[in-house]
Design a protein around this nucleic acid. Structure first.
Lengths: 347, 347
DNA sequence: ATTCATAATTGGAACGTTCCAAATCCGTCA
DNA sequence: TGACGGATTTGGAACGTTCCAATTATGAAT
């Protein structure tokens, strides 16, 4: 029942060549003669040989594994990011360890350690909230390529790929202003993250630029989830001077805001303008389709993987920080011009 | 710059013991004296030693890796499933390879092969559409534990963990019937999958049981996504004799159906009853909150992992098929009793 | 002091690959 | 025929761990 493992020497023996030759075939070396190659490949198939990467690793101390650790796989933004990475990495003949930290630093420490033990040759990390440069220090010192994605960490000394959150938020808010909105809220997200910080500054700068004042009360943090969006909009609507539009921390929050709006019998896009951030896959098909700042999560995953692979191949590259450009995708959820509140005309 | 790898012999040398002792410490063996253990642990920390699992694997030919391959990570059902697995697996000191096949059999073949090469000690697979027992044969023969999840494959000879789709669908449709609905549709999903088949039979059996006839036209397949839901409901509403309620293939479809309903100015839950399947995390917070058949994806992931781990530890366990029970979670989206169409009274 | 059992430690061999230097093959040219 | 050179092939020594059998230290009992 328990099968003996078939090894290269078994193959070698069966094919009447040496193990070195088999190894050469395995690596696709041009050194081996066409006919022996064919013979070896045939016996490999016949005996059902399975390559043992652990052994190979041990010898050449470079694995074909990259690790990706994300802070919240439940959020479809990160799920899409992960599939983007997967596509790229698979293409390069690598395989990925994926781990989810659920925003827990301790867990993150564990999984990174575990990945190191497994000899990953590079790591893509979307760090858990509150991760500091010091947390990454041992990893960085070991010299294994790391690219931080989504959330950058100052002075960590590694490459990073983020998106232009400030510009994206400004573009969104400008658009809202053009449409006549004056009371614009910024909803959702954890205020202690760099991403929140950047998007919020973009929001604020756009208001200032238009000579509007940025009321403290209009920025309302919450969990960056659908549920968080619901609570944020509820809070916003309790204000004496209610907003008529909102830029949301991300799409999940935006969907939640739409839900919350409906719960009070307001139709998003008609009675209240909402803009998201990320352009998750459902943003397009939702009703109303979500206006959002597109950061193309899947593409971002791919680019992060590319960056990492480049670094792995280069041996030791200089750390580079890329900030990807973003663009506002105008769909229906911001459709409400403030003066056109009499939507009844439409139906 | 390039650090030399620190190995057990380095530790041994520095701590003044033999490499065997260091190995014993690493494995937490009770054989080693308390004071030497402390000394060894100290030098391990001092030298920044990183355990090399490849080498260990090679020697003991059992890794602490399990693989999980899913057919669509973009679908939050599977993302949650993966998180569930992750939790369990991490707890057991394992680490997971995660790969996404995007429903492509060829890709699935590749990733499974790759995982085998990496010496995973078990595999959790949610097979791509159209996977046959033959596709899994080489894997199964190799004797590595496999548990199929979500989608079972007949005669594959491996354990599986599915949910009681038939019973769940029946419960949902019965509920709709009790509320007075007579024209009930079954929307979304690929008709050529076992899961579709089971849910659809449940739907049909419930109708038959109530003496209603199951009109062919009322079951409408589509991609099992939000976008698919939109097209399915559109098609349903073109029917001469429109349905007043629908059981959807999964929650993603159900959300799409809600979107599609709104697009034609119908309020889900008030003007049309919709029930989903899965109980994805957003089902609870959506507006209207989605009535759905709860499958508890995360719990399912955990159970699958447990099953697999049990099998790994047992060496070679009998294949067992578990079908998890499900329950109907009644929330708002099915709120419409057919006779109460005058919802204006509510607001 | 000697013996004995128990506790703690240890030196190799082994795991399956890769890589190097060296060996062999084979056709060609002088 | 013999030497030459490019094309192939090959034996062993690594890689960093674990495991076994065997050794040494420790302390109790005689």
């Amino acid at each position: 029942m328990v099968k003996e493992r078939v090894t290269v020497v078994d193959i070698a023996h069966a094919a009447g060549v040496s193990k070195s030759t088999v190894s050469l075939v395995l690596q696709g070396s041009p050194l081996v003669n066409e006919v022996t190659r064919a013979k070896v490949n045939a016996t490999i198939r016949d005996l059902g040989y399975v390559y043992n990467r652990s052994a190979a690793n041990l010898r050449q101390s470079k694995s074909k594994i990259i690790g990706i650790v994300v802070n919240d796989l439940t959020n479809s933004f990160f799920a899409e990011l992960a599939v983007g990475v997967d596509v790229m990495v698979q293409q390069a003949g690598f395989v990925q360890f994926l781990a989810n930290t659920g925003e827990k630093i301790e867990r993150q420490r564990e999984v990174v350690a575990s990945m190191r033990e497994h000899g990953v040759s590079g790591l893509i990390i979307s760090p858990a909230r509150g991760t500091e440069a010091a947390d990454l220090a041992p990893l960085v010192e070991s010299g294994i390529p790391v690219v931080l994605v989504v959330r950058d960490i100052a002075d960590a000394g590694v490459s990073s790929l983020t998106s232009d959150n400030h510009a994206g938020a400004m573009a969104a808010v400008r658009h809202l202003i053009e449409r006549g909105h004056r009371r614009i809220a910024f909803l959702g997200g954890f205020p202690d993250t760099a991403v929140f910080e950047a998007r919020m500054r973009g929001y604020r700068d756009a208001l200032l630029e238009a000579g509007l004042d940025a009321a403290e009360a209009l920025v309302i943090g919450s969990a960056p989830s659908r549920a968080g969006g619901v609570t944020a909009i509820e809070q916003a609507m309790m204000l004496s001077d209610r907003p008529t539009a909102a830029l949301c921390f991300n799409d999940a929050v935006a969907f939640g805001v739409c839900d919350g709006l409906r719960a009070r019998r307001l139709e998003p896009g008609a009675d209240f303008a909402v803009i998201g951030f990320d352009d998750v896959i459902e943003a397009k098909t939702a009703v109303p389709a979500l206006t959002t700042v597109s950061v193309d999560p899947q593409g971002m995953g791919q680019r992060a993987a590319e960056l990492l692979l480049k670094q792995i191949n280069a041996g030791k590259a200089q750390a580079e920080s890329i900030v990807g450009s973003v663009r506002l995708v105008v769909r229906q959820s911001c459709g409400a011009a403030v003066e056109r509140r009499t939507r009844e005309a439409l139906s």
